[in-house]
Design a binder for these strands. Structure first.
Lengths: 227, 227
DNA sequence: CGATAATTGTGTCCACCGGACACGGTTTCA
DNA sequence: TGAAACCGTGTCCGGTGGACACAATTATCG
């Protein structure tokens, strides 16, 4: 399976020509997930989208888990190339690029939970994130932890701002606030903190993303300047 | 279903006495998830644990999604009561408490992804988090965003440090580093940033959690002091 | 007291899921 | 010209969530 993630090794020569490709299967599965969500991705449906039997897929992919891993790495893609910049701007645009990737394929939030095999594209993302901090003065562990903190925040905001199936347009806190106000209408005395916080809210676009990023980067700056 | 989350309303009077309770079902499901993971929670297995047929559960719970929502809110529990303290210490211990909750029921990381119905316990967690910041000078939206950033980081670290089925003992970066070093052994030139970062790592316990929290709180402090 | 209506747990059935396996057709190599 | 390798298909299995009809149980009403 690692072999699949890192490029298919040997096209055999003996039998009939394969009628499909791993790339085609992965692409069909991604298209399916993009339109109908990750739950709609089943072997049957992927095969049907390619006009084949589901069992034919197992000639190219060991199982569903590996297919999802392939989908994930391909859909993640490579981080866009950005010019060298000071660590803060570099990490900020890197985070926004990552958010854009989640925005393009919201199901990535589901397929990247839990322990899993990391593909080359995902590793490249991590590499670029870490490299934004190479000249910051932080040591290796700090760099990794810092990137982890940023990706965690991006994930959280994306997860809460992107409706799972198709929706995207980042209306950040839209749902949570509406769900909250619904509850607080009758239970406001039970959640006093939330109640007063909700009253002084300014419905700004994508605020949660940049707010948290600014906070994290400010914190990193403190750490870096402290030396 | 909301009714279920917020307390069962009316025990009817006509037919035979119910032989189970929603609490019992939820408890059995939680126990099952604690030992064998969330994937092991099926209607059949939950019913079998209570020596009943799976269809009997549907008299108490509308469906599996609602059962998982119940499990989630119950397992989350209420945040421990802590004495009033300045916002920074309050938020820090709140975050550590939240991490402990995820440590106790690792499957919460899976059951709390995507759009879902928020239960009273989960809302209480949010309320306590926000209330830690009431005297910080931040406005309501900022308070919510700040708490969201913290929970995002806690989730990320927990997710990567807790092995899904049963394991717990927070050996934070253990897996990611081992998986990374495995790849970097042969592909180090392809991920130069990761390669050098891995070389200067100090295998400290649970470092990722406190590191990120310190960074976030430092950033909040900057924002607050700026006024 | 007896009939009725409501509610319980069960049994049966369905579509769908991931996957094991055997089979016949196709292609290349010895 | 076999023989060996590989492809796509069909069949089968255990498991999933859930709809539905059914007999048994219980409280209420006449």
């Amino acid at each position: 399976m690692i072999n699949l993630l890192w490029g298919d090794p040997l096209p055999p020569t003996r039998g009939p020509k394969p009628a499909m490709t791993v790339e085609g299967i992965t692409g069909a599965a991604i298209a399916l997930a993009d339109t109908d969500g990750l739950d709609a991705v089943s072997m049957q449906r992927v095969a049907a989208a390619l006009s084949f039997t589901k069992m034919a897929l197992y000639r190219y992919v060991p199982g569903k888990a590996e297919l999802v891993a392939l989908m994930t790495d391909v859909a993640m893609g490579l981080p866009p190339d950005r010019p060298r910049r000071p660590w803060r701007e570099a990490l900020m645009t890197w985070a926004l690029d990552l958010y854009a990737a989640f925005e393009k394929h919201p199901w990535l939030l589901l397929s990247t939970v839990g322990r899993r095999e990391l593909g080359p594209n995902e590793l490249t993302w991590m590499d670029h994130g870490v490299r934004a901090l190479t000249e910051s003065g932080l040591n290796g562990g700090q760099q990794l932890d810092a990137v982890l903190t940023v990706v965690g925040h991006v994930r959280t905001v994306a997860q809460q701002s992107l409706s799972m199936p198709g929706g995207s347009t980042g209306v950040t806190e839209e749902h949570i606030t509406s769900a909250l106000s619904e509850v607080l209408a009758t239970q406001s005395e039970r959640f006093p903190g939330l109640a007063v916080a909700m009253r002084s809210i300014d419905g700004q676009q994508n605020k949660g993303l940049t707010f948290g990023l600014d906070v994290i980067l400010d914190g990193l700056e403190v750490l870096i300047k402290r030396g």
